[in-house]
Design a protein around this nucleic acid. Structure first.
Ligand SMILES: [Mn+2]
Ligand SMILES: [Mn+2]
Ligand SMILES: [Zn+2]
Ligand SMILES: [Zn+2]
Lengths: 141, 141
DNA sequence: AACAACAATGCAAAAGATTATCATTTGTTT
DNA sequence: AAACAAATGATAATCTTTTGCATTGTTGTT
């Protein structure tokens, strides 16, 4: 039960939090969701949760370390459940497709650069933008 | 004269554009400026330019390819004059310090990843966040 | 140098995303 | 079940950026 999971995080097991957790866990392919996305998904499931609450809960989940916030190009923050392993993103600016990758060489180099400049690295963000294979196909017309 | 430069870009040589160009060219250390930063700098120089115009002109300069827009963590876009060579950024989340670097290995790997996933890469953004040496010193107290 | 044509500007309003306020409801503990 | 604190929802507020529109400025032409 998600209630137990929430309590372990020190969060009250409220209905909105349980529902948002369900949405995020069952997101499948559309793992990267904006607050608005989550809000709409809730409405579709017939759940009556305010948008302000969605924002609040997402921020709490982020602080609790169970999800990550990303700043993809163009406005809103997007969130995704943490599946333990860090990864970066490559996305199609045409159709919005998102793929995930982890490149040990890049990770390593980042650390080396931080050291070289005298920074203690706390975080990093890497986004690759491009046009996916599908979109290039469609566009050939 | 900046007027000629602007005309070559197909932009009318208006006072706001000339002044904004001057600000950006002479920014020195504070090369990474938000629209608000540019606006304040103009006011300090006694120039009476509207904030809306600053936003418009910065966007035009970006489209003309003479400056680059970045999305650092936390809010506003920042702009910097293009000095020809692409580079990435490492920044201190404590004091706002920004350093620039270019790592051929990382650039190479990014391209390889795009290929592997079938994307034709159009752009990428890499930010490393951390605490700079100075800030770590101050904080030891 | 004055003119017409059209682009650019400034102000204020609008928009979009996120956060804050506060009365009311809910979860948890007793 | 009662009591207390925490969480919610509706709405207002904030912050950044964009837009609308009347006015002004720039440029090529008389
Ligand atoms: Mn991801
Ligand atoms: Mn730079
Ligand atoms: Zn695509
Ligand atoms: Zn610092």
């Amino acid at each position: 039960m998600d209630s137990q999971f929430l309590k372990k995080l020190g969060l009250k097991a409220t209905l909105p939090r349980i529902k948002i957790l369900e949405i995020l866990e069952s997101a499948g392919t559309a793992r990267h969701m904006s607050a608005e996305d989550v809000y709409k998904a809730l409405l579709e499931h017939g759940e009556d949760v305010g948008l302000a609450t969605v924002y609040r809960v997402l921020t709490q989940f982020e602080q609790a370390g169970i999800l990550t916030r990303h700043h993809f190009e163009g406005g809103q923050s997007v969130f995704e459940m943490d599946e333990g392993k860090h990864h970066d993103h490559i996305l199609c600016t045409r159709c919005g497709r998102v793929d995930e990758f982890l490149d040990p060489t890049i990770e390593e180099r980042q650390k080396a650069i931080a050291d070289k400049f005298g920074y203690s690295m706390t975080d990093h963000s890497l986004y690759i933008y491009g046009i996916c294979k599908e979109c290039r196909k469609t566009e050939k017309a």
